[in-house]
């Protein structure tokens, strides 16, 4: 059995979300895992991919296909799936992974299941799967009937686990054969305005909600985040009031975070907010209300006014 997995890179290494997808790909059974990487063949992280059981890497080099063009990337996967007789094609459930697999679904006319946590072949053209609905607040048990199963893997549900025995990996330079219109939509990339650590990958996130009280209340949270080597994240109330930009929003319609620690201050813990922070290893809540729903998701809580607790915490950390 052969499966094809799109691997995204984070610098020179496979992206964490792609390692999670590869972990799920191996669990599909006795499979040969073939991957597609859009990079120079010389810079493919072959050893890291071998650790995850990858047998073949098809490198699509920038000379052949420059930049991110979702439909062209999907075309490469479609042709490779046909050539290798793959029974499944998957990607990480990132913005790009979901986008490319949706194009692949449209190109092939096959169904595509986004953000799966479990996929199991069930004979013939059947796969049983579990996927996220409501941004992971609900799970859907579903059956997919298709000659090739197309799906993405939820980024915060499957832990990345290397294979027991690394595979012998072969790297091939792959020349894409595109169709008309595949390059019509292509990203022009430039460094984003605000630099610094990104919310999605931060090790510590200090969260602020309505309890912060207004745009001027965030300075102590910023200071605390700085001391903990983290970044500030916020609730939707904060962005829709215009206190902070939307790119700092944690939740269903914001960013999903996976830090070691999420310190949620003045945040009630609405389920759409939890959808974004459930992947945190530890949660500590600071809230005036001992009955706030966030306490049912937190490991620890301080009951009190964040305007007193946070300055005192900052002072204590500075004194260390």
């Amino acid at each position: 059995m052969t499966v094809v997995c799109l691997v995204e890179l984070d610098g020179a290494e496979p992206a964490d979300a792609s390692l999670r997808a590869l972990t799920l790909a191996r669990a599909l059974g006795d499979t040969s895992v073939q991957t597609v990487v859009f990079a120079e063949s010389a810079s493919v992280p072959a050893a890291a991919l071998a650790d995850y059981g990858v047998s073949d890497v098809y490198a699509v080099e920038p000379g052949a296909l420059e930049g991110y063009a979702p439909q062209a990337w999907a075309r490469v996967l479609a042709r490779l799936a046909a050539e290798t007789g793959a029974t499944a094609v998957l990607a990480a459930g990132t913005d790009r992974g979901n986008e490319v697999l949706a194009h692949l679904g449209a190109i092939t006319g096959l169904p595509m299941a986004a953000n799966c946590t479990i996929v199991t072949p069930d004979g013939g053209q059947t796969h049983r799967l579990v996927r996220h609905r409501w941004a992971g607040l609900l799970l859907e048990d579903a059956v997919m009937e298709a000659p090739i199963a197309l799906f993405t893997v939820a980024t915060d549900a499957v832990a990345p686990v290397p294979a027991q025995t690394p595979a012998a990996v072969a790297v091939h330079v792959h020349k894409p054969e595109l169709a008309e219109g595949d390059l019509r939509v292509r990203a022009a990339e430039s460094p984003a305005g605000a630099g610094g650590a990104s919310l999605a990958t931060a090790r510590v996130v200090v969260g602020g909600g309505r309890g912060v009280g207004g745009p001027d209340g965030f300075a102590p949270l910023e200071e605390l985040a700085g001391l903990l080597g983290g970044v500030v994240g916020v609730s939707r109330v904060v962005t829709s009031e215009g206190w902070r930009p939307h790119r700092q929003q944690v939740g269903q319609t914001g960013t999903k975070i996976t830090p070691e620690l999420y310190l949620a201050c003045g945040i009630s813990g609405a389920i759409q907010h939890i959808a974004g922070c459930a992947g945190a290893r530890h949660i500590i809540a600071i809230n005036t209300d001992p009955g706030a729903p966030i306490l049912a998701h937190a490991d620890y809580a301080v009951i009190g006014d964040l305007h007193q607790v946070i300055p005192a915490l900052v002072a204590a950390l500075r004194a260390r």
């Binding site: 937190a298 620890y300 809580a301 009951i303 009190g304 607790v309 204590a316």
Partner: peptide
């Protein structure tokens, strides 16, 4: 959640 304390008094425990 385990409650660490109330107000600024909880800070040593929080640290």
């Amino acid at each position: 959640a385990t409650v660490l304390g109330h107000g600024a008094d909880a800070v040593p425990e929080l640290v």
